[in-house]
Design a protein around this nucleic acid. Structure first.
Length: 935
DNA sequence: GACATCACG
DNA sequence: GACGTACGTGATGTCC
């Protein structure tokens, strides 16, 4: 039937269906093989319901489901931050996308998508075609962006609420008719799609303006006439941004399509095709209902229930199945490997572990790979073992019976890169980096270490040995038993293949069992979102940063080391002179004896060891009393620290191949969600002392590039103001006031213009103290004031900001009740000691107060980092380092300003859309030839 | 390997 | 009323 008058076209917003189905349903998996299938199930149910609901006299004559395809559209060319706030697609959803297309076709409904075009534009195109042909259109969607299409025989239907959206409903929502919806949206902007709009103008105001001036162009042309000064200024200054916003929200009805409306005619489904698909998906209930409807027999679905699908209920659940090292297979040829690859493909997942010659991924060579697809069954593929025959040449020959490395990798690459097969690892970042060095980009990945972290942060560590013992009641073969320890330790390529099989295959086996144990728990314990949005997508980002490394200038460090050595020698002589004897200045024990026994200064023993305390605070007090020796020791210690930890050690970390220093981030290291940096730690490079700060001059940009640093300003205090709901602090942050000065003014009744640096300093210490779970003792020690006075400050602070005390009490109460506290993004940090008696409870109490604040800040910067690759993809900029509230980039000189603009925008908007903070997040930026200049 | 010390946010 | 106390990390050197 040719489309024309009397025809009725239904256009279904397929992507909206999918996301609604995915988020509404628990993460179902297909019973036979564990393929995630929840979104497909929800999608099919929604389509089925739609078909049933649209059979009456007003049934459509034509119908199509439209999907988005590709993430880059003309809107990204117009505005590189378009939809930059969007979270990446959850890994569990990705393999389901093609299945939703199949489902649509199984229902015999036209399935439409076009690379590089948004579904909304295709819907607009079809709508206009149908309307022009004289037909009616119903758009099944509740997306406000489609409301501009309503009118003239076009209406929308919110399928969830079963609510019609006509011209009236659009007017109700936007305050203008459908033809002016675009104008209102252009002014109001949209935080979800990251449409900038006119700052300070929302839908209400936008409608008011449009109704007064007729349309957007007239409004902008006559902006001078707007009475309210702020609005007028915005409209004049932001006119370009508003016009850009309009381009972004305006749907494009010119999508080139290679079919006509006639092709969308409603057709009965083919029972075989539809039931075949539903049977293949193993949807029992839906198959039955559909079969009844079609008057045919439902498909038979075998009731398979393999080990692992429902672990705890099964007798051979992974935590109960015994470990049998002799059962592990050694894969020595392509045929055997092919079988394992087939099994992995059939399953849709595979646990992977690599064995290498070093813990430093940048230098490690691949020695072997282990795989596991079923609990208890695993293989090891030896690739780089040496034969161990101790000849004169160091036995560098490859051992017999190994596949050539390249042949094995060629076979494995398609599997490891297959988007439909989940690669499961323990600390997958390590293995992914190894594979990356051999040209394999492993994806998608799951990580048992990160699952444990999301589930159990604060309860225990997340290393494999600990997890295996705790959850599988199995002690893995210690690596030391193969490699030995200390000076005589060997590398893994020297381990006999027979021993390596038992060790390595066991690791893959354990990993698979742990993932089958943890995966369902993520949802049960409400941390799926944390795992999916804050943990899993961060892995490739960190891997990239670590592989990029940062250039460090050896000569600068070397010169500084020499200078430090000279100064230290001078100081040492002086110290020995003052002491009247020679001793090891680096030994706190000897120093204590000199100071307190020999010289008889005031001071006391401390700690279980009975040694004198000689910490910086003690020495500073002594120095303040006029003693020279402790003052010299303080200087010596500072230099010693800078030399040994930084100027000396950093040189050893320069990778000879890249000339750069490659740190490793531990994603599950800090209980709060912060990262930790090791080998070397680049999160504690000196900055507070002038002398130390100069070490940052050695962290340089390549020729023609610039180091750019962006850091959040006062992010933890801002988060405190938000979570504790302190109006005065929120207001101060909104107005960009000096928060410490304001606190001082409130507490000490000093007007802001009479503020002294010392009063401000005290207020600053109190502000930080609050974040740490303040105590009179701690504040007294920090400010070096009597304890009573410090307590007085705290009392006054709580009097002034009662909301803070309430927040602290509530947080502790929550922790005592639940055993954990939460960040704004749902990260759980467990506090097992909170109900204990003794000093442990005090620590736990303060940690509980601090964790949501520190953790929320950590979550925010993680979100920014995860979005960064996509936001900066067109820019010649590399993200190199994260230092808790700072991100460091290396940028081509010409692109510095653009990069700062994009990165700042991403960082400042990183909490959105999941959390709308009551305070703005602001970011300071710096740039220069090295880190010292950029900071 | 425990402990003290000190670098960072 | 006494008890110990700022929160979160990692690297280094000494000493047992």
């Amino acid at each position: 039937m040719a489309f024309g008058k009397g025809c009725h076209l239904h256009l279904i917003d397929g992507s909206a269906f999918i996301f609604r189905a995915f988020h509404a349903l628990p993460p179902l998996t297909r019973k036979s093989d564990g393929l995630p299938i929840g979104a497909v199930a929800g999608f099919c149910n929604m389509i089925f319901k739609y078909v049933e609901d649209n059979k009456g006299p007003d049934a459509p004559t034509h119908v199509a489901v439209i999907f988005d395809k590709g993430s880059h559209t003309f809107r990204n060319d117009l505005y590189d931050l378009y939809k930059a706030n969007r979270e990446d697609m959850p890994e569990d959803l990705r393999p389901q996308i093609p299945l939703t297309r199949e489902a649509t076709r199984a229902f015999n409904i036209a399935c439409i998508e076009k690379e590089g075009y948004e579904a909304d534009d295709i819907i607009a195109t079809l709508t206009v075609q149908a309307r022009d042909a004289g037909g009616r259109v119903t758009i099944i969607s509740s997306d406000k962006d489609l409301m501009q299409l309503v009118g003239g025989g076009v209406e929308m239907l919110d399928a969830m609420k079963n609510k019609r959206i006509g011209v009236e409903e659009v007017a109700e929502k936007f305050g203008v008719g459908p033809d002016r919806v675009v104008d209102v949206q252009a002014l109001a902007g949209d935080s979800v799609d990251n449409i900038p709009g006119a700052p300070g103008i929302g839908i209400k105001t936008a409608a008011l303006l449009i109704n007064e001036y007729g349309d957007l162009d007239s409004l902008l042309a006559r902006a001078e006439e707007v009475k309210q000064p702020k609005r007028r200024q915005t409209l004049i200054e932001k006119a370009d941004q508003i016009r850009l916003s309009r381009q972004l929200v305006q749907l494009d009805a010119q999508t080139p399509l290679d079919f006509t409306l006639d092709a969308l005619e409603v057709q009965e489904p083919d029972p075989d095709a539809l039931l075949g698909f539903l049977g293949q998906m193993e949807f029992r209930t839906l198959s039955k209902r559909v079969a009844e409807n079609l008057g045919v027999a439902p498909p038979a679905i075998p009731d398979t229930n393999p080990a692992g699908a429902n672990p705890s209920a099964e007798p051979d659940a992974p935590e109960n199945l015994p470990f049998v090292p002799e059962g592990y297979e050694c894969v020595r040829d392509a045929a055997a490997l092919g079988l394992w690859i087939e099994r992995a493909n059939a399953r849709g997942w595979v646990a992977v572990d690599t064995e290498t010659t070093s813990l430093d991924e940048m230098r490690a060579d691949l020695v072997g790979i282990s795989l596991s697809v079923e609990p208890g069954q695993a293989c090891y593929i030896p690739l780089g073992h040496r034969d161990g025959s101790d000849d004169l040449f160091g036995s560098d020959n490859l051992a017999e019976g190994q596949m050539p490395l390249n042949a094995a990798l060629d076979l494995l690459k398609p599997l490891l890169e297959d988007p439909a097969v989940m690669k499961i690892g323990q600390n997958m970042k390590y293995d992914a980096k190894i594979f990356a060095r051999y040209g394999i980009q492993v994806a998608p990945i799951d990580d048992t270490m990160l699952m444990s972290y999301a589930l159990n942060s604060g309860l225990h560590g997340h290393g494999m040995d600990a997890l295996s013992e705790r959850y599988l009641d199995h002690v893995p073969i210690p690596i030391k038993s193969l490699l030995g320890s200390g000076k005589s330790a060997i590398t893994f390529d020297r381990v006999p293949i027979g021993d390596a099989v038992k060790y390595a295959a066991e690791d893959a086996d354990i990993t698979l069992r742990l993932s089958q144990l943890f995966k369902p728990q993520l949802h049960q314990r409400r941390v799926t979102t944390v795992y999916e949005t804050l943990e899993r997508p961060l892995v490739p980002v960190l891997a990239e940063m670590e592989m990029a490394g940062i250039k460090v200038d050896r000569d600068t460090l070397s010169r500084m080391s020499n200078a430090f050595a000279q100064k230290m020698a001078g100081l040492e002589a002086e110290i020995h002179d003052l002491a009247g004897q020679s001793f090891n200045v680096g030994s706190p024990k000897q120093l204590g004896e000199i100071l307190f026994d020999k010289m008889g200064l005031e001071g006391g023993k401390k700690g279980k060891t009975g040694a004198y305390a000689t910490g910086a605070d003690v020495l500073e007090d002594l120095a303040a009393e006029g003693h020279d020796l402790p003052a010299r020791v303080l200087d010596w210690r500072q230099l010693s620290k800078l030399k040994s930890t930084y100027t000396d050690a950093l040189q050893d970390h320069i990778n000879p191949e890249t000339g750069r220093v490659h740190t490793s981030y531990i994603q599950s290291g800090a209980n709060t969600g912060r990262l930790a940096s090791t080998d070397p730690n680049l999160q504690n490079i000196p900055v507070r002392s002038e002398e130390g700060r100069r070490i940052r001059e050695a962290f340089v940009a390549e020729t023609g590039k610039v180091i750019v640093s962006l850091d959040y300003s006062q992010i933890e205090l801002r988060i405190l103001a938000h979570v504790a709901g302190i109006d005065e602090l929120k207001q101060a942050f909104r107005e960009g006031q000096d928060i410490h000065a304001l606190t001082a003014s409130e507490m000490f009744d000093v007007p802001l213009d009479e503020m002294t640096p010392d009063i401000r300093r005290q207020a600053k210490a109190i502000n930080f103290g609050v974040i740490y779970g303040i105590s009179g003792f701690g504040l007294a020690r920090n400010l070096r004031i009597p304890r009573g006075e410090a307590q007085g400050f705290i009392d006054r602070y709580f009097e002034r900001f009662p909301g803070i005390r309430e927040y602290m009490d509530d947080t502790v109460k929550f922790a005592k009740e639940h055993g954990f506290v939460e960040t704004l993004f749902g990260r759980k940090i467990h506090t097992p000691e909170i109900n204990a008696k003794g000093p442990g409870a005090g620590f736990a109490r303060r940690a509980a107060i601090n964790a949501p604040i520190q953790g929320t800040a950590a979550d925010v910067i993680r979100r920014a980092m995860i979005r960064m690759p996509r936001a900066t993809c067109g820019l010649p900029a590399k993200m190199l380092l994260q230092v808790h509230d700072e991100l460091l980039f290396e940028v081509e000189a010409g692109a510095v300003d653009d990069t700062i603009a994009v990165v700042r925008k991403v960082m400042e908007g990183a909490a959105m859309p999941a959390v709308k903070l009551d305070v703005p997040l602001t970011v300071d930026a710096g740039q220069g030839a090295n880190w010292a200049e950029a900071h």
